[in-house]
Design a protein around this nucleic acid. Sequence first.
DNA 1: TTGACATACCTAGAATAACGAGGTATAATA
DNA 2: TATTATACCTCGTTATTCTAGGTATGTCAA
Lengths: 110, 110
Amino acid sequence: MAVDKGYMSGSSTMLVLAILAEKPYYGYELIKTLKQRSNDTFDMKEGTLYPILHKLENDALVASSNQEVSGRVRKVYAITEKGSRALAKEKQEWNEFSMAVNQVLTFGVV
Amino acid sequence: MAVDKGYMSGSSTMLVLAILAEKPYYGYELIKTLKQRSNDTFDMKEGTLYPILHKLENDALVASSNQEVSGRVRKVYAITEKGSRALAKEKQEWNEFSMAVNQVLTFGVV
DNA sequence: TTGACATACCTAGAATAACGAGGTATAATA
DNA sequence: TATTATACCTCGTTATTCTAGGTATGTCAA
């Protein structure tokens, strides 16, 4: 990660879901997209992503299918209805968390 | 934690330093202050705080001294010059990180 | 005065999450 | 043909937090 890896903890799953909320992606493509969207701040490793995708699929938050993309079969992941609901909840938690952090950091600052 | 514990990872140390940046605190007091400042979002456990304080002291980011506070000897922690510099850096990293998250979450949203 | 509760500091072990480093295979390109 | 990029995967290490305990003191009500 470009940022301290500790920060990533907990938000990785949400970030993956957020990317998939737009349209289906396959793993490798997802990493590149995440990197782009974050202006090179997030450089998620494959050793991080694939276990996350497998867990998401296991929990039925995403569904995978083998599809031919530009002449090659790839495992494409799509978000499910359940996944969309989970994402909405995680976004809410993230907002609560980040606001609380900013509140502590800016205490006393006018 | 009131929020998912995963989110805390990485920011706990920064939050402790941020509290100490205002004035010296002893451990127990610090937990209560953090909880107040965050509107009950952060409920840090003692098993989390004390190891953090010990590590911070070991790295010379804080300094401790036994002081009598309201008729009782307590271990009071104060931020050092080095600690202030570390806090400034961590704040910067936090800003970079949270902005990147928000950028990914709000992609395509007008 | 005695028992319960809050205060106050601490540690060991379990759980979780991300990473590094490796493996395997195919396609493109020089 | 050799190298690089693509593409998916797993295992073991490391880092961080929590749970659950231990110890001790002060306060307050029954």
